[in-house]
């Protein structure tokens, strides 16, 4: 494509955009809405992946013991576990220590645990350090044949639970996203139909003086792309700010007890910006192509 044609498309595209401001604003708003949902979904997915890989490489296993075991039994178990192939180290955390740890972690919010001292629900626990994360399943298998163990928890298992728990969330967001994308495309295409309609005389003239279809289409496609990209930029900015806020919240506030670490801001925003701008561009282009198709046939 020639440079002058590109310039012509850009100029006319911008003109179209400012010609009907209300509809343009409506389109951009709908694009923003759709992209916000996509963006939120995307950020959640990124963080699940992030958490998943953290869990996957985790080399610690928690072994929760049954209630009321004697110190002797515990000590025997300790030796037994230590001899399992792949176990590097073992640490015992008693019920009481576990409670104290939690109180410390909660800090000002420790009052939440008040009254639990007499009837401590936390179990006695072994924390096993593995030689490497691949040993997790074989060690877990060995542990399962032992008595007096209530539950073993380790990264891979948590990971599976995490993925299972988010399955419904992911499917639901996917559905919402598809619907929102269709709505955005529909609104963009209607906005552009208005400009096409306003310029139908001009299009007619272009056609009989020998303009090609894509030359006629060009400005409208640019208009659609602009609607999509402007929506994309706005959505990116909003989500970026929102995510920044979330990171700080998680770092500073009591949510910290959930021991969540969010994916770093920079990593998230870079891929999110790329995604949202691309999606904006694509829905803008599709919307415009849909609207010009009918009018161009002369």
């Amino acid at each position: 494509m020639k440079l002058r044609t590109t310039k012509y498309f850009a100029k006319e595209g911008f003109n179209n955009l400012s010609r009907n401001k209300v509809m343009s604003a409506a389109s951009i708003t709908s694009v923003i809405a759709a992209l916000l949902v996509i963006g939120i979904f995307f950020i959640i997915m990124l963080n699940i992946d992030y958490a998943a890989s953290a869990l996957e490489s985790q080399i610690e296993m928690m072994v929760y013991l049954d209630e009321g075991l004697s110190e002797e039994t515990i000590s025997v178990m300790r030796d037994e576990i230590k001899s399992i192939n792949g176990v590097k180290d073992i640490l015992f955390i008693s019920k009481d220590t576990a409670l104290k740890d939690m109180q410390k972690k909660l800090g000002d919010n420790a009052y939440l645990l008040e009254g639990l001292e007499s009837d401590n629900p936390l179990p006695n626990t072994f924390i096993i350090t593995l030689k490497n994360p691949q040993d997790a399943s074989s060690v877990s298998l060995a542990l399962s044949s032992m008595a007096n163990i209530e539950k073993v928890s380790y990264g891979k298992e948590d990971l599976e639970k995490l993925l299972k728990a988010t399955y419904v969330l992911r499917m639901a967001s996917l559905l919402v996203i598809v619907i929102l994308l269709f709505i955005s495309i529909f609104i963009i295409s209607n906005t552009i139909k208005l400009t096409v309609f306003a310029r139908r005389r001009e299009i007619g003239i272009m056609k009989f003086v020998g303009a090609t279809d894509w030359f006629v289409r060009g400005p409208f496609v640019i208009e659609g792309m602009l609607l999509g990209v402007i929506g994309g930029i706005a959505a990116t900015a909003l989500l970026g700010a929102g995510y920044y806020y979330c990171i700080n919240l998680v770092r500073d506030q009591m949510i910290g007890i959930l021991s969540i670490t969010l994916m770093p801001f920079k990593q998230v925003t870079m891929s999110m910006t790329a995604l949202l701008l691309c999606v904006g561009l694509v829905i803008g282009t599709i919307g415009s192509l849909l609207s010009v198709r009918r009018f161009i046939k002369v």
Binding site: R4, V209, G210, F215
Partner: peptide, 11 residues
């Protein structure tokens, strides 16, 4: 000029 523009004639 418009009739030439749409044929991508040079300025």
């Amino acid at each position: 000029a418009f009739a030439m523009q749409v044929t991508e004639a040079s300025a």
